[in-house]
Nucleic acid binder design. Structure first.
Lengths: 197, 197
DNA sequence: AAATAAAACTAACAATCGTTAGTTTAGCAA
DNA sequence: TTGCTAAACTAACGATTGTTAGTTTTATTT
């Protein structure tokens, strides 16, 4: 039993290493431009050896994207459940994005740019999650407007503006890792909610 | 002379049609995932026929990206030259992004997602323009902070936040074309500068 | 109507793609 | 040491890639 666990762990680790490296390459060049030979070279092995650990290139992509999408979905569902006021909910959403970005910036590049290369089944699943996420976001903002916690601007514009900044965090954060996560959160909340003038 | 002009015009139009169609496909799937046969099929011709109008796939990409990047560079340089106050300069930047987006949303997808597939020379040229653009943006915001026209938050965060929204406009605008351009501008300026709460 | 040029075509190329089959090496368990 | 298995390897496959060469069709000019 111990032996079994140990072996399984080794396999899983190697698989995770491959997926992690793949995410880095996908971030740099995009899914389609990264070949299995590129990935293998980055891992210091031959392309065929990758297939001892993963089933296909497509499986790597879906593993990266779906797990992240589920993380956002679960996070949003938790926020929706709470009885926080609108501002607090928005702060929690910003928190969620910053947390996920700090933990997996490379994977987020694939989620943002390569989701369309998912195959049928996972593509549908992903698009469903994305639509639901945006709908929840809009609902929170809409309610905020009704309760006069938020200015009565066009809801789509407010949601799009905020969300596009949060979704693009992965592009920007790695460059400025000197900024402490808590400071980032605070300033981000201020800028996104209260504006800059 | 008239004949020469007419012929040249026809060639140029066909070339422009191809580049326009390519931008649409690049937006949907990304540069690397679009084959010359895909593009040819979308144009209703065979792949080899494309080469009567363009020199290479790479040429299509650089034509799309470089011309747009130059448009942003020129627009920003004009704004920097003026004696407007900070708020007005920021409004002009927002204007610039909305104008370019309305005129060429498809091309902006390539600029945002496929610039790394430019070859050496154009890649360097593009990166130079992007860095200068961001530096000019930061300089405007920094001056605004010094003149107390803008809140003293972290400058990188303010610039990044605004710029990432503007850069992602292309993803969002086509869906909501019912929104009038002038209304979009007004609300966008309000949301980005004054915040939503 | 004849001549010319533009723009399509067919066919094929060398390179590269994701992936499979079969084999060898390395590390651990007995 | 022997046996077993994970994880690497070599070699190759059929498909697809961007592109070229050479030819035919279409449209325009004289």
């Amino acid at each position: 039993m111990k032996a079994y666990r140990k072996q399984l762990m080794r396999v899983e680790n190697r698989r995770e290493e491959i997926i992690k490296e793949a995410a880095i390459l996908f971030k740099e060049r995009g899914y389609s431009a990264v070949t299995m030979r590129d990935l293998a070279k980055a891992m210091g092995i031959k392309a065929a050896s990758l297939y001892n650990h993963i089933q296909s290139k497509q499986e790597i992509l879906s593993t990266i994207i779906i797990s992240l999408a589920e993380e956002f979905t679960n996070g949003m569902n938790e926020i929706v459940k709470t009885r926080l006021d609108t501002i607090q909910k928005l702060e929690r959403i910003i928190d969620l994005h910053i947390d996920v970005t700090l933990r997996n910036a490379d994977g987020l590049a694939a989620l943002n740019n390569d989701w369309m290369h998912l195959e049928e089944k996972n593509l549908q699943y992903f698009e469903r999650m994305r639509i639901d996420y945006e709908e929840n976001f809009k609902k929170i903002v809409r309610q905020g407007v009704e309760l006069k916690e938020i200015k009565p601007y066009n809801i789509e514009i407010m949601v799009f503006s905020t969300l596009s900044t949060l979704r693009t965090l992965y592009l920007w954060y790695p460059k400025k890792e000197k900024i402490d996560a808590e400071i980032l959160k605070k300033d981000m909340i201020s800028v996104l909610l209260k504006g800059i003038i």
